[in-house]
């Protein structure tokens, strides 16, 4: 992996939610480099917990997460988390806020200096197609528009790592296609991790794929090869996923 490009690495990571005793995430090693990686798994597989851990939002009980070799939960945490953008599965920003104010709130939350936040917010709203709606209340946006606003929120820090938790869930096909186009336009040097149930999205948008089950990585490799090798004659990504799941559980 090129040293100049960002890399996110999780080693020997175990996560659980006390008082529970079962590890929700149990990884030996996961290294993520530039480009898009799909993160797939059934409900409860640990995708969201893993993304939160990689984002610096949930300290693991064991193991280390490093960004470019620096411990994400160590002394440099403040600087490192600023380089990571997280698009949560659901972000219900107060409906009474105007679109521009909602984005401004997230900029403040993420510690973006005021002098750079304003122009960047305007630019992001244009990028996600919400420029003309910047003065509208969040509650008046459609589901697709809200997801785009959340995507813009994830980008306020100009992150080197972008973690997207089921970004297209709940969107109609047109909205999904729009959001997919947006995500494909992101810089290639960005480490992007996209968690999704929609295998079609994963196949189209990611170069690599991680299959997670009960917190463990069952497969990590090239997405095209994954579908070709395990997707049967129809090259079905769903089939490839199910076959991997069955093999891993066996």
């Amino acid at each position: 992996m090129d040293d100049a490009l960002p890399s996110l690495r999780a080693v020997d990571v175990r996560c659980r939610y006390p008082p529970g005793t079962v590890d929700v995430v149990d990884l030996d090693e996961l290294a993520l480099g530039p480009g898009a990686t799909g993160l797939v798994g059934v409900n409860g597989a640990g995708k969201t917990t893993l993304l939160l851990t990689l984002a610096g939002a949930c300290r693991p009980q064991h193991g280390t997460v490093t960004l470019d070799g620096a411990d994400l939960y160590g002394r440099e945490r403040r600087e490192l988390v600023g380089r990571i953008g997280l698009m949560p599965q659901s972000l219900d920003l107060p409906g009474e806020l105007r679109v521009a104010d909602a984005l401004s709130y997230v900029s403040w939350l993420r510690g973006v200096p005021r002098r750079v936040a304003g122009p960047r917010e305007r630019e992001l709203l244009e990028t996600v197609g919400l420029g003309p709606r910047r003065h509208e209340r969040v509650r008046r946006l459609s589901g697709g528009m809200r997801r785009r606003l959340v995507l813009a929120s994830a980008l306020v820090t100009e992150p080197a790592v972008l973690l997207l938790d089921e970004p297209t869930t709940g969107l109609d096909p047109e909205q999904r296609a729009g959001l997919r186009a947006l995500l494909l336009d992101l810089p290639a040097a960005t480490v992007t991790v996209l968690s999704s149930h929609v295998m079609e999205d994963v196949e189209r948008m990611t170069a690599r794929i991680v299959v997670l089950d009960e917190g463990r990585v069952l497969h990590h490799g090239d997405t095209t090869a994954f579908v070709a090798e395990r997707g049967g004659p129809e090259r079905s990504p769903e089939l490839a996923f199910l076959a991997t799941l069955a093999r891993g559980r066996a």
Partner: peptide
């Protein structure tokens, strides 16, 4: 219940937001 908590946790000073 808004889902903003992960963003709070990744703030520079989480206690402040």
């Amino acid at each position: 219940t808004s889902g903003v908590e992960p963003l709070v946790q990744t703030a520079r000073r989480p206690w402040w937001p």
